[in-house]
């Protein structure tokens, strides 16, 4: 079996995939999975993998070598890739020879780079997922939830090298934050009075330093919500909750399954990748959208993604594994 050896694991390198079976949340397991599912799926497509194949999610500069010839692909915001010291393009399949060394460096510190691997990592799967969940101490080489470290080796069953794939310029994800993030209002929205809701949607929020795979804490205009005792309830991905200080927290892949803070709604699924790629100091804004329009946009967004996946003449459509 081929091996990938990490020579530099950057600030954090994790194995991620599409996340656990959704029913695992019913017994308290967090959803987990890649925080930026769009980039994750694209690097898998570039490697001719099923779209939910485990890949690496990296923060900071990461260097690794491979023991056997294999295919990889790298994606993420403004990421540069070197193969044995020579610049190669992101967002395309890259054929590595045995012994090759790859350096992945994002231009901005804090963004997530995704490394798709042409094969399947041989690691324990918990509740249908190989994602490393540090908070729960689950997943990874020793199944203890530790992020990958320098000198770690990952066994991978490589598949044969497929025809080269690359994204056209317009197919590369747009990570910019100029457009507001769509929010499906709901949950306790009725407890936020009209003026507070308007204030929230009219204000700019700065991404704080307190961000991780559980959630992003933002700072800006504090929002008041009518105090009222509430019981813990299920938290969907993207939920925007307000603790007593009135500063919003957007919940992401490793969020706890239940929580008791009032929520104004959820960032729409198709906009979560942009927030997940924001770094401290970035500014985001929100805009309300109703559930029907949001679903319409989601379906269109998925159709566009399928057009990319169907576009390659030499490829079969990668089927997402049924979970």
């Amino acid at each position: 079996m081929a091996e990938i050896t990490l020579l530099n694991s950057g600030l954090q390198t994790l194995v991620v995939d599409a996340g656990r079976q959704p029913q695992a949340q019913e017994i308290g397991f967090c959803a987990s999975g890649a925080v930026d599912l769009l980039s994750f799926e694209l690097v898998n497509w570039l490697c001719a993998n099923p779209l939910d194949t485990p890949a690496l999610e990296c923060i900071g500069e990461v260097v690794f070598s491979v023991s056997h010839a294999m295919e990889i692909a790298v994606g993420g915001p403004a990421v540069s890739v070197q193969q044995n010291g020579d610049e190669v393009s992101a967002w395309q399949s890259i054929n590595l020879a045995a012994g090759d060394t790859v350096t992945v460096s994002p231009r901005r510190l804090g963004t997530k780079s995704y490394i798709g691997l042409g094969g399947v990592l041989d690691l324990p799967a918990i509740k249908g997922s190989k994602t490393i969940v540090t908070r729960e101490g689950v997943g990874g080489i020793h199944n203890d939830g530790k992020s990958l470290q320098k000198d770690d080796t990952l066994p991978v069953a490589v598949h044969s090298i497929q025809a080269m794939r690359e994204l056209e310029a317009h197919e590369i994800p747009d990570y910019t934050l100029e457009t507001p993030l769509d929010v499906v209002v709901g949950y306790q929205q009725a407890r936020f009075d009209n003026w507070q809701q308007q204030l929230f949607f009219a204000s700019e929020y700065t991404v704080s330093n307190d961000i991780n795979r559980m959630g992003y804490r933002l700072t800006g205009q504090a929002i008041e919500v009518e105090p009222e005792e509430m019981y813990s309830e299920g938290i969907n991905c993207g939920a925007i909750q307000f603790p007593p200080d009135g500063q919003p927290i957007v919940m992401l892949a490793d969020r706890q399954t239940l929580g008791g803070y009032p929520k104004i709604g959820c960032v729409a699924d198709y906009d979560i990748y942009r927030l997940a790629q924001a770094v401290p100091g970035d500014v985001v804004t929100f805009r309300a959208i109703d559930a029907d329009n949001a679903r319409g946009k989601w379906l269109l967004w998925h159709r566009l993604e399928e057009l990319i996946f169907d576009s390659h003449p030499n490829s079969s459509h990668p089927e997402t594994e049924q979970r």
Partner: peptide, 22 residues
């Protein structure tokens, strides 16, 4: 139906967007 997450006094119903709407 993807998942039913029970709270104390609430039930969060998660559904497959390809097959259902609100």
């Amino acid at each position: 139906l993807k998942s039913l997450i029970a709270g104390y006094d609430s039930l969060l119903v998660l559904f497959d967007l390809q097959r259902a709407d609100v």
